[in-house]
């Protein structure tokens, strides 16, 4: 258990930040991350022997987060007004950028977060999103072009 708690303290914030960039809601990001670490604890005897247990919990958290995003879109059918919650220092954030990311479908959103925030290569993005490399490439390509259009920025050609 000591090993698990040390791992938790070392990794929780980093996973929560990635999840937050996908779900765009601080409370929900922390809920999802906590759920992922709970599942990790349930499988700790096995996962702790993996070379990178961090990748396991990150994959679970990202999967939960993308499903939450899809679910959230479903729930918006019944919500009256659940606009994004303002961040603590919203004035200093690039709100246009966050709105543009928020408009992306869940898979594309996750792909850009892993690419730009975690600096992952395509092969790792595919692994974390549980898809083929070509699918990850397509999601990233579409996401970058949608973001460029929304933000009227120039985009270089495809990433490798």
């Amino acid at each position: 258990m000591d090993e698990y708690t040390s791992f938790y303290r070392a990794e929780f914030t980093s996973v929560a930040r990635t999840v937050h960039l996908i779900v765009h809601d601080r409370q929900r990001a922390e809920d999802v991350t906590q759920e992922a670490f709970l599942r990790l604890l349930q499988h700790w005897a096995k996962v702790s022997r993996y070379e990178r247990p961090g990748a396991w919990v990150r994959r679970v958290a990202i999967r939960l987060a993308t499903k939450q995003v899809r679910r959230e879109r479903r729930r918006t059918l019944v919500e009256r007004d659940t606009g994004p919650r303002p961040c603590a220092d919203a004035d200093s954030l690039d709100l246009d950028l966050m709105r543009a990311i928020r408009s992306l479908p869940a898979s594309q959103r996750a792909a850009v977060v892993l690419f730009y925030f975690e600096d992952r290569p395509i092969v790792e993005i595919a692994d974390l999103l549980d898809c083929t490399e070509s699918a990850a490439k397509v999601w990233l390509h579409r996401a970058r072009h949608r973001l460029a259009e929304a933000l009227t920025e120039e985009v270089s050609e495809d990433v490798s």
């Binding site: 914030t13 954030l93 690039d94 730009y116 933000l151």
Partner: peptide, 19 residues
């Protein structure tokens, strides 16, 4: 460029998350 803006933007947002 988009790439630069994205990296700066998401890093800034993520840094504000301290659970």
């Amino acid at each position: 460029s988009l790439d630069r803006r994205m990296r700066d933007g998401v890093t800034h947002v993520a840094a504000s998350i301290a659970p």
